[in-house]
Design a protein around this nucleic acid. Structure first.
Lengths: 190, 190
DNA sequence: TTGTTTTTTTACCAAATGTTAAAAAAATTC
DNA sequence: GAATTTTTTTAACATTTGGTAAAAAAACAA
């Protein structure tokens, strides 16, 4: 049932049986249809989600344009983090790109788990460290690589995403317009 | 002595007197001269630094060009994080931009502190959350703002940096060449 | 100070990406 | 399946940024 979740978290720290089972009562299964919202604009992000099935994106409205900041790979945690950590209204929106099955954990429950088990707190810390490292490499990509290379790398790293995610979201994630993405896709082919 | 450090960490969690004092024996003061290295390329990052005085930058060599990924504001933690978390040789270099006074803490000591005090583990987690949120807003800037706006925002947010940090490092941090930075600085003036 | 090295600026041209508009293709709805 | 809506592609032109080279300015060293 929670195999993927278990595998994900135990990458970061070994958990005793008791520690692992302590999270169980806090996991809530939520199914979203394509285009449903996980977090709406202005809402306070009171929970975090592990994507068991499907793809979410994190976006925000910038002068009427939707800016996709993140497209979640399978089996990772997603929320509108700025809102989640500060418990203030979210400028970010989290939306289902495809039908999704999510494991949802409320922040209050997770914080209680952290209070009780140092080891869970460690898992939380290590996951954040890892996410930070990944975000940094994305910044390196923006600094050093033209859009075409960023696109190629993304295709290599997340080939499954291209079967499920509209190109306009991918273009925004790469920091270009969908017209530009179209153009560089054409030039790559030949 | 450690007032700035104490203020920084207690932003993230309240610490009892015992908890605060537990870190003291682990703090090592290190002074760097301008251009000295804190972490060298290929070295394993075995410690983290709080910049009490001065500015560090995090960079790496990309086809012979130095790419500045980060310029540390005063009173924050810095290390070559990918190496630090995985304990593998660092591709990133951490170098003093100005003379620096650093509070250095070894990873082994910090991990021991985390093991012993859940509250310190919490501080570590919250700092990583905060750093992640900041890095994300930098990604938003890359996606939505042209270099000129990114430059203006940086000047607003870190005006002190411009008195100490060479423009070429700032250009690289902004993701442009120093020639381009020169050009847009000229156009802003009038 | 003088000479040397490094950094910043300027200029010109090239390449990458944005903007606007419209057509084509695909997905969705009735 | 036909009509409608959304997404993707194409095209022409504008703007931003990069690359190369060299001059000017600043920092550093003898």
């Amino acid at each position: 049932m929670y195999d993927d979740l278990k595998q994900f978290v135990t990458q970061f720290a070994h958990l005793s049986r008791e520690e692992w089972e302590a999270v169980m009562p806090f996991i809530e299964i939520r199914n979203l249809k394509k285009n449903d919202y996980f977090i709406r604009e202005g809402e306070i992000a009171r929970y975090i989600s592990f994507t068991q099935k499907g793809y979410l994106r994190v976006l925000y409205n910038h002068d009427g344009n939707e800016i996709t900041r993140d497209i979640s790979p399978l089996h990772t945690f997603v929320t509108a983090l700025p809102s989640y950590v500060s418990q203030t209204p979210s400028f970010e929106i989290v939306q289902a790109i495809t039908d999704c099955e999510l494991f949802v954990i409320y922040r209050d429950h997770l914080e209680a788990l952290y209070d009780r088990y140092n080891n869970w707190q460690r898992v939380g810390r290590r996951i954040m460290e890892e996410m930070f490292v990944q975000t940094q490499s994305r910044i390196y990509a923006f600094i050093t690589q033209p859009a075409e290379v960023r696109y190629d790398e993304m295709m290599k790293q997340f080939p499954d995403i291209f079967q499920h995610v509209p190109l306009q979201y991918i273009a925004s994630y790469l920091g270009i317009t969908s017209q530009s993405l179209s153009r560089l896709r054409r030039s790559v082919k030949f």
